[in-house]
Write a protein that binds this DNA or RNA. Sequence first.
DNA 1: AATTCGTGGCT
DNA 2: TAGCCAAGAAT
Length: 297
Amino acid sequence: MTVTETPVPPLHDPVIDWFDEHARDLPWRRPEAGAWGVMVSEFMLQQTPVARVLPVYEQWLARWPHPADLAAEPPGEAVRAWGRLGYPRRALRLHAAASAIAELHGGEVPRDHAQLLALPGVGEYTAAAVASFAYGQRHAVLDTNVRRVFARAVSGVQYPPNATTAAERKLARALLPDSEPVAARWAAATMELGALVCTARTPVCARCPIAARCAWRAAGAPAHDGPPRRGQTYAGTDRQVRGKLLAVLRDAVGAVPQAALDAVWEEPVQRARALDGLVSDGLVEPLPDGMYRLPLA
DNA sequence: AATTCGTGGCT
DNA sequence: TAGCCAAGAAT
């Protein structure tokens, strides 16, 4: 039952003070971003680094300042504007989320965690992040950065488990400050600490505000033991082929002929499987005459 | 619970 | 150079 009941010295103040001084000035953190800006950023930041998100985020918010603006356009436009951020199904889901917000929530990003969670592409993390960052609510925001910070500082191990565990959620809730605004600040601060200081490969403990209280350091910074996390091979996979196919469609003005798609990959079986996958995902729309385009609906 | 799903910079 | 890794979600 008791997983990590070790009384944790107050980490809140040093981490939040550090955040006050070192937080990056990111556009989705500015007040004018609004809940929609926060939501767009969260979708884009799912598995994509900040540096690559920044320019695309600016384009999206300029073009679609409100959810209804995006919902009014074909999903294929979202896929096109997604550019090379990767995992383009996120663009489709963000478009679908915008449509749901327009139709079910009066065009306003919902404040309620459960309503956020019900939106396409919004999972546990993103729902908590939007509720916390956009609306200042008190939620345990458990992303890869926070999980790593807690794993080290509190649990004393180099890396968190592969998948988020009940123990991690319990720990995150236990560490959450009582005050709603402080909890929201804490969420952003722990995430930033993981992103800038307590990084995966080479943490910069010299700049860490809680290094003196870090359980992992106290234990001598032991290396991760256990099965290595599965690497993500890419070359030669269906994902690479999908990427090449979709790039052709993104860069085309209208529909493209089958031959243009065939040119991106030599092996026909894998090529066909990848294209089928894109179609069944709704990322590509086949036309009766053997042409293909980004989806209009 | 284990897989699938892009892309590119960094070491 | 060849992995490793990046504010996950859906199935």
